[in-house]
């Protein structure tokens, strides 16, 4: 029977007992919350030792009011054993910074730029960290929960 990624989770816990802070695997959504300082090691291990050869998505969540405020979310897929795994890591508001996984997965390039563009989280070691969806003149990060709902920054036309 398929184990929906929980065997990979077990492997991860065995290997990184110090870095894995929380795991759960309800209804096949295997998830691990890891130490942000170890994200590169964890991802490298999952890629090289646990068959997770595809990074499906990189995104973030803003939990305004909590500390640490931001949460990075990585969705991994193992094409061989058909398993999925979600890795999360909390990022502090004062230093919104985490290691880039572009050296491990090239697909992270634009997804990390999007997270930088909309949340203002910086990726250490990213080869080309610029805005990707918005324009250079844009100030602030619109997907942060404290970005004013009515704030508009048009390039042409009135500030509607």
């Amino acid at each position: 029977m398929e184990d929906f990624g929980s065997s990979a989770l077990r492997k991860l816990i065995d290997e990184f007992s110090d870095a894995v802070q929380l795991t759960h695997a309800d209804h096949g959504d295997a998830t691990a919350l890891v130490d942000p300082a170890r994200i590169e090691d964890v991802m490298r291990f999952l890629r090289d030792e646990a068959d997770f050869d595809m990074l499906m998505d990189v995104t973030a969540v803003d939990y305004l009011g909590q500390t640490p405020r931001f949460e990075m979310v990585y969705h991994l897929y193992a094409t061989g054993p058909n398993q999925r795994l979600r890795i999360k890591a909390r990022v502090a508001e004062e230093t919104p910074e985490i290691a880039s996984v572009v050296p491990l997965y090239a697909s992270a390039d634009w997804m990390e730029r999007e997270v930088f563009d909309l949340y203002g989280i910086r990726f250490d070691g990213h080869p080309d960290l610029r805005r990707i969806l918005l324009y250079e003149e844009f100030e602030g990060y619109p997907l942060r929960k404290d970005y004013p709902k009515e704030r508009r920054q048009p390039l042409v036309g009135p500030r509607n």
Binding site: P142, R151, P154, G157
Partner: peptide
């Protein structure tokens, strides 16, 4: 009606 969308092209 958000940070990204022009509210009618007649503003341009």
């Amino acid at each position: 009606n958000n940070y990204a969308t022009v509210q009618g092209i007649d503003t341009i």
